[in-house]
């Protein structure tokens, strides 16, 4: 089931609305000391956008301009392309047979894009940040892939509408809680957010964010929130039954669940310190990866037993 072509801009607007919501949530959750009634904070994304539209762009000495541009605008484009397959109330703009793989392919594209964002400026801090992303991705990507497989196995399909439909009785988060949590962690990973914002570390003057200014920076920061929103949308479809729920229409249920997941993702930023890749690599491979494999085994056996 899918919508006609005019729904593509609608999907883009919906994603950007969730993106803006994520930015507002982040401002509201900020625990600043004073000058901080929530009304003062809600407007922050607007002020930041205005500030960056006013600010001049920047170029450095012998930058790799093409790759840099690719890296600053790429994350937003990836989030928009992910949004094409994310169902809202059981239906998406398009519903390919390989919807889950589609999402996977684009989150891997982010390896290149974030690295480009760091590399392009010919700046030491940016370069270190770009390579930090690759190291971090080596830690989260495999658990993410196996976490993605769990709902697909349970539904016997890679088509997202069928994955959602297969949850009509029990949401997959019940069978696969570990996969759900791993998925959320990985979303913060490819969004360079909170505990996994190691590539944008404060210790290297914000790493991949050190050099872009003006509209370049605006695009990169927007892309970051958009990736969180797309990740929340995907989590809802894969693990939280999509638009399933009583009384309210399906699209509204989808929206509410996405909002809830988004709030959790945004809130993670203030709960934990940065998990540096060299410090968590061992735990990712020796704890997280086996855990997701066991999770997948459980789901496989349950699916086989239930069929």
């Amino acid at each position: 089931m899918s919508y006609p072509v005019w729904t593509v801009p609608v999907a883009a607007v919906v994603l950007m609305s969730f993106t803006a919501t994520a930015a507002v949530l982040d401002a509201v959750l900020d625990s600043a000391r004073r000058g901080g009634g929530w009304r003062e904070r809600v407007g922050r994304p607007v002020w930041e956008a205005a500030r960056l539209l006013r600010q001049r762009r920047r170029t450095t000495v012998a930058p790799d301009a093409l790759l840099w541009r690719l890296g600053t605008s790429g994350p937003l484009v990836v989030a928009l392309l992910m949004a094409v397959v994310i169902p809202l109330g059981g239906r998406a703009v398009t519903d390919p047979v390989v919807g889950v793989v589609w999402f996977n392919a684009f989150d891997v594209a982010l390896w290149l894009l974030w690295w480009c964002a760091g590399w392009g400026a010919n700046s030491v801090y940016g370069l270190v940040g770009g390579y930090r992303f690759v190291a971090q991705a080596l830690a989260y990507e495999l658990p993410l892939m196996f976490a993605l497989t769990a709902p697909a196995v349970a539904a016997g399909s890679l088509r997202l509408s069928e994955v959602v439909a297969a949850q009509d009785r029990v949401w997959f988060v019940v069978w696969a809680p570990v996969a759900f949590l791993v998925f959320l962690l990985a979303v913060t990973g490819f969004s360079v957010w909170g505990p996994l914002s190691y590539p944008a570390g404060w210790d290297v003057a914000a790493g991949v964010l050190a050099e872009p200014s003006g509209v370049d920076r605006l695009l990169l920061l927007t892309g970051r929130y958009a990736l969180l929103a797309a990740g929340a949308g995907m989590a809802t479809a894969l693990f939280l039954g999509g638009g399933a729920g009583p009384l309210l229409p399906g699209w509204l249920w989808s929206g509410l669940k996405i909002l809830a997941v988004l709030a959790v993702l945004v809130a993670m930023r203030r709960r934990l310190p940065i998990l540096r890749a060299d410090r968590v690599m061992k735990r990712a491979w020796l704890v997280l990866l086996p855990l997701t494999l066991v999770q997948l085994l459980v789901v496989s056996v349950l699916t086989y037993g239930g069929s």
């Binding site: 593509v8 801009p9 883009a12 539209l53 006013r54 600010q55 001049r56 762009r57 920047r58 170029t59 450095t60 000495v61 605008s73 937003l76 484009v77 928009l80 392309l81 400026a121 010919n122 700046s123 030491v124 801090y125 940016g126 003057a205 050190a210 050099e211 003006g214 509209v215 605006l218 695009l219």
Partner: peptide, 29 residues
């Protein structure tokens, strides 16, 4: 859509920014 939107944003920035051309500066060390 994405390409159009991003291109549009760059065009808007040409008007709103204090200067349309990027500033060449040394990277931050």
């Amino acid at each position: 859509l994405a390409a159009g939107g991003i291109a549009g944003l760059y065009l808007v920035h040409q008007v709103t920014a204090v200067a349309a051309d990027p500033l060449r500066a040394s990277p931050f060390v």
